[in-house]
Amino acid sequence: MHRARPTATATGVARVAVVLALCAAIVAGCSTNKETSTLLVSVAASLEPAFQEIASDFETQVPGVVVDINSGGSNSLAAQIIEGAPVDVFASANSEAMEDVLYWHAATGPVQTFALNSVVIAVPPGNPASVSGLEDFGNENLFIGLCLPAVPCGSYARESLASAGVVASVDTEEPNVRSLTLKIESGEIDAGIVYTSDVVAAAGSVDSILIPDEHNVDVRYPIAVVSADESGVAAAFVAFVMSDDGREILASFGFELP
């Protein structure tokens, strides 16, 4: 081993070079396709199903563009953008998260309201616990779920409960409306408050009980371009969301339109 040492070091260096070159090639191989550009769109969890369809329609209309949908709680999406996630378009379920982004991170397009929503009581199919309205949320014998107070669906739910004068006995606070809906669908939660559009999206896997207008809330969804958008594709995507095609899809997923 000692005899061969100088050569061993030389070949060692060569080997490092080869291995590093290989690693680089693997990394580069994933991103050198020049023909397509990728648009990263962050959307509130409640918007995800509608935006999947909007994205695939947009991809057919604008060849060469791939739209990736990143969904989650509006505030964590805002935090990701502020921390430098390469997001092109942000569609939020509340104006606070959008304002945070505008404050910490320049948006290049105007902020537009593209959809409206309201909240509704969701119960498992057949309403096994015979929930009839917001007043049942104070019943300690029922399993009650809400979204976290920090995410829009949670703050809207609490707003609605407060206006009805109900103090909820909450058994779980879910990070987003999807995980809350899962627990309602599976019957673990007797009642929860979700967006009206979620009940439409869940299509029969949950039942709903309307919350009267005087205790309901006005949910407005803002959208904006949040990247430099040199190619204009992000602005085109926002325009598509605002267009008749986009509005039709949003309406089919249970959103109201501005």
Binding site: G73, N75, A79, L148, A150, T172, E173, P175, S179
Partner: peptide, 27 residues
Amino acid sequence: TLTFAGNVQGRTQTMPLAVFVALESNR
């Protein structure tokens, strides 16, 4: 934990869940 046990402070909220919740509200 989140999916099966849910998330309520003092009942089922573990450290990772508390971190996740705080990321939404108090960085």
